[in-house]
Each structure stands twice: as C-alpha cells, then as structure tokens.
Amino acid sequence: MRRLVARRLLLLAPMVWLVATLTFAVVVAAPGSYADAVDHPGLDAAQREALRARYGLDQPLHRQYLSWLGAVLRGDLGVSFVTKEPVTRLLGRALPPTLLLGGAALLLDFLLGVAVAVAAARRPHGWFDRVSTVVGLGVAGLPSFWVAGLAVLVFALLLGWFPASHMLSAGADRMSGGARLADLLHHLVLPAACLGLAGAAGTARYLRAALLDIRSERFILAARARGLSERRVLWVHTLRPALLPAITLLGLSLPVLVSGSVVIETVFSWPGVGLALLRAAQARDLPVIMAITMLGAVAVLVGSLIADLGYAAADPRAREDLR
C-alpha cells in the first residue's frame, strides 16, 4: 500500500507539469491573446513597450515559458491585471468558500444518493424506484442555472426562507460566533442544495445499479439463507460492497462539482473560485484565469488520486489493478 501511494504520487508530478504547460501553451502562446489583453487601446507605443517588458512579453517564448514555470514552482502565480494583487492572495481568499460549498454539496450528494438508491433497490421496479428514476433523469438533465434561478425565485423571493445570495449577512461581522455560524449555514443551504442535487441523481443511479448487481451475488443469497433480516442484508451485506465503487464515483464527481461551482457561485454571488473565474473571464484577467484553470485541473487530479487510494485501502483486490 505504501509503495502504491508513493508510485501514484510520483506519477502526479509529471501530470501537474503537463497541466501547467498546456495552460501556458493555450493562453500565452496563442497568437495575440495574451499580448492583446495587456495592450490597451489608449496606450502610445512607448507605454505599450514598457508594459510588454513588465510582463516579459518582449522575451522569446521559451524564456517566457521557463521564467513563468519557475515562478509557478515558487508559488508565484502572477499579479491580476485588474486588481493588481497577487493571484495567490486572491485564491487564498476564494478557496475556503468554494471548499465549504463543495464539501456541503458533496455531503448532500452522497447522503441523498445513498438514501434514494437504498430505498429504490429495496423493491426494484416498485413505485419509488420508478418515480426516483424519472425524477433523477429529470434532475440530471435540467440545466443547473435554471434550477438555481428557480430556487432563488421560490425559496428566497417568494417564500423568503433563505437569503438570495452571498455567504454572510451584511452585519455578520458584528455577530457573535454562534450567530455568525448560523448565518453562514443559512446562506449555505440553497447553493449547496442546488450544487449537490445533480450529483445526487448520478450517485443514486450508479449505486442502485451496484446494489442490484450485488443482491444477486452468492454471498447475499447465503446471508438470506442464513435467515438474516432483509434490512440487515440490505444495509450491511449489500451496501458495504456497493459503497466501494461509490468512493470512486465521488472522485469522479469532483470535476462536475468544480464546473458546477461556477454557475452556482455566480447565481448566488458566492465568493468562491468559480465566481472569481467568471469575473476574470469577463475582464480577460488572464493571470487569474490561468491560475484557476490550473487549480481546477490539479484538484481533479488529486481528487481522483485520493479516490483511487481510498478504494485501494478499502478493497485489497483493487490494489493490483491500480499499480
């Protein structure tokens, strides 16, 4: 197991390098794009040259690449074109809200997914199974921005149960610790639900299939034959092996979650990485776009690594496959 971890970690490094290089290739090497973003129509020739020198655009491409890569390795992701602040500081601020939102969504995804799958697998092709399949299909097909807009309309504007946006109330800095936490959770409910719902549909669908597969396996029949209660068979003997692949599934749902965060954070003005990415895209703030894109890819790589390792830790049979 330890060797597996070391090996996978070693494999991660070249992938991260490749991801960074691809980002550089797309953004900086693409003709005109980076230089255009630096250029401003109002500049005269001398100012333009000065700016190009400042961003190193007067250097040959390979030198630009090496100095950029060196900076990235030192943890220097450049300076935002718009706010002039270091991108790392911007990310440090945007990351915690995104992790919070993503974590809550993932939790909901998993809990709801398991609950629905178990209920559906209890009586395959029963009414709940049919209804949940259709609803799940619908949820997965509905565009998330549409669902989020509707959720704001219904739960924030018409019913007034939850705030329409942001992570904290305007007066939160004056609240006591407990009240502040409650305020945060209150703001978290709608966006986390919108983000987690689509994932839950996928998890439920996958898990239901896995549960049904396992049900027909020999050791389940044996358990039944031993006279164990149906509930115990389902919750203990069937769910546990079915959850193993679900761990991988959660790893796979990470990219979906990361992508989804852009839409959800935009609709809810949630101060995370997705919103920062959209704002940067609107303003063509390339250093920020590059950094967040890389970060997203690295997160996906790390996520799938953790899922693989978790799977291996839980199931010895998988260790061989993952070598």
Partner: peptide, 12 residues
C-alpha cells in the same frame, strides 16, 4: 456579479 442578483437581494 449581476444586476439580476442585486435586484433579487433588494427584493429579499
């Protein structure tokens, strides 16, 4: 980030 979001918050 959007006028829509501002109007929603105003109404809420």
């Amino acid at each position: 980030p959007s006028e829509q979001s501002l109007v929603n918050q105003l109404l809420a």
